[in-house]
């Protein structure tokens, strides 16, 4: 299952683990990404909480947790190759994985078609 937040994060759900990254629209808006700060394993975050930072040449932007949970893995490779966020935002450039606390929160997110419509409304 793939879900999207209004803040342009995606979460791919397998079992009770969610893998989180930012969307292609988000990376386009950010421009060239030059630094990513991913969370420490074990960190507990609520839905909508600030959990990571992505810096483009222009500015720093917070990444929010699309659902609440506990971080179980972070993509350390991103600190060496932040450009992956521009090149492959939905794949290689995942930010972190978390154990989802309440899968009910997923229902408040958009599916792929819903997100595509949402983005169209922003352009």
């Amino acid at each position: 299952m793939l879900k999207f937040s209004k803040e342009h994060e995606w979460v791919r759900v397998e079992g009770d683990i969610g893998t989180v990254g930012i969307t292609d629209y988000a990376q386009q808006q950010l421009g060239d990404v030059v630094f990513v700060e991913v969370p420490e394993v074990g960190r507990v975050v609520e839905k909508g909480g600030e959990i990571a930072v992505v810096e483009s040449v222009k500015a720093a932007s917070d990444i929010y947790a699309p659902v609440g949970g506990t971080v179980v893995e972070a993509n350390a490779a991103l600190s060496d190759s932040p450009g992956d966020v521009n090149a492959d935002p939905m794949g290689k450039a995942w930010f972190f994985k978390l154990k989802i606390a309440n899968k009910g929160e997923l229902g408040e997110l958009m599916d792929e078609a819903g997100y595509a419509n949402y983005v169209k409304g922003l352009e």
Binding site: G31, D32, V34, S56, V57
Partner: peptide
């Protein structure tokens, strides 16, 4: 113009 399609990094 803050940037063109090439992007800030490429332009720099």
């Amino acid at each position: 113009p803050v940037q063109y399609p090439m992007g800030v990094l490429g332009e720099h």
